[in-house]
Design a protein around this nucleic acid. Sequence first.
DNA 1: GAAATATCCCCCATAATGGGTGATATAAAA
DNA 2: TTTTATATCACCCATTATGGGGGATATTTC
Lengths: 210, 210
Amino acid sequence: MQNRIIIIDDNQLIRESLRMILQSAGKYVIVSTYSNCEDAIANLERDAPDIVLIDIQLPGISGIEGTTLIRKKLPNCIILIITVSEDSSQVFKSLSAGASGYIIKTASLDTIKKSIEEALAGGAPMSLSISKMVVESFQKQNDSPLSDRESQVLQYISEGKSYSKIADELFISKETVKTHIKNIYRKLEVVSKEDAIRVANKNKWVQNTH
Amino acid sequence: MQNRIIIIDDNQLIRESLRMILQSAGKYVIVSTYSNCEDAIANLERDAPDIVLIDIQLPGISGIEGTTLIRKKLPNCIILIITVSEDSSQVFKSLSAGASGYIIKTASLDTIKKSIEEALAGGAPMSLSISKMVVESFQKQNDSPLSDRESQVLQYISEGKSYSKIADELFISKETVKTHIKNIYRKLEVVSKEDAIRVANKNKWVQNTH
DNA sequence: GAAATATCCCCCATAATGGGTGATATAAAA
DNA sequence: TTTTATATCACCCATTATGGGGGATATTTC
């Protein structure tokens, strides 16, 4: 059976190029192409796509919001972002929104076809630089101004643990925890738990609990 | 200049196979091979590797702990995990520990050589299934028993925000926030902030702030 | 020998938390 | 249509948590 694909991109040239490339492969049916999310979403049920290729910069609803909306309607649909830039915040936002992979607009025709096949095979197609970015998001940074013990305490704080709980788990007194936290706040120049967590996350000084 | 590689694997056959493959490429010098982490770490300064290939299951210090220790001594060294299994918790732990990529033991010789080249080029070599796993870790699940509002409140809780702060940001009263939290605790069958965050993270009902 | 670190103690006040028991209005589902 | 879920808000209550201030000691590191 042929896979149903829809393409959402405000650039007609790109829409038509993608259509050509994919149709020539013979494995796909390009059921529709759209220049904006609104139209695409209105026809989602009728189109019933297996794969959506969506641009990130779109007039009106953005590609990221669009990804969220499409996944809400069709949870099993594979969404691949077509993009020119490799901006990290955009990448993370679209992955969080439910995109499965990234296709760089300047990629070769072969690479694009391969990306779609990888997605269908259950993979997560993306360029080397993007996968590197994603992997780095897992890695704790070593440039924290905090001591080992302070980092540890902050890690626990970021997990929502109370002072008493931290004290128990580290076999130290609650007062010691308080002292560490005072020093953490001083070093990070913050005055609250929330800000400390925000700064730590921003700088990847704590590990996300995946 | 040739890149310096060390190999840590308790299986002699694999050590020697990897040595052969890589030496034949001509671009690499295999400075040493070890059957355990302890010996490798003892000789790190002398070996000064650019790339470390390390098995995940090792006698004594595990590959994951080893990755942490090696990165502490040589922060710019690229560490690639050699593994047979694609267990998600192991994958995340080693990425968090600082590994850059994953090489599957059963991969073809060509794939292995290519992985090392990708790593040197600044990429994050890993199999399709592993990259999929990593991408999925970004994606919020939709199977939460919580209502939209409750999920939103829990998201804020997981960011360390206080009831008052949440109330302010959502333009609702503190009492309403409390009610939502009571309902969240009831639905998740927990009695504390910490447990709620743990359950939510485990099920990916909240988004990590990357 | 000074600086950083890790540990602990006291005081103090306020803020935050969580359990209970309500209420109201709306929307969705049975 | 009646029930259920949701979202909103209120008051009572007690305990815990938080954060700022001060100080202390021992070890390690530079």
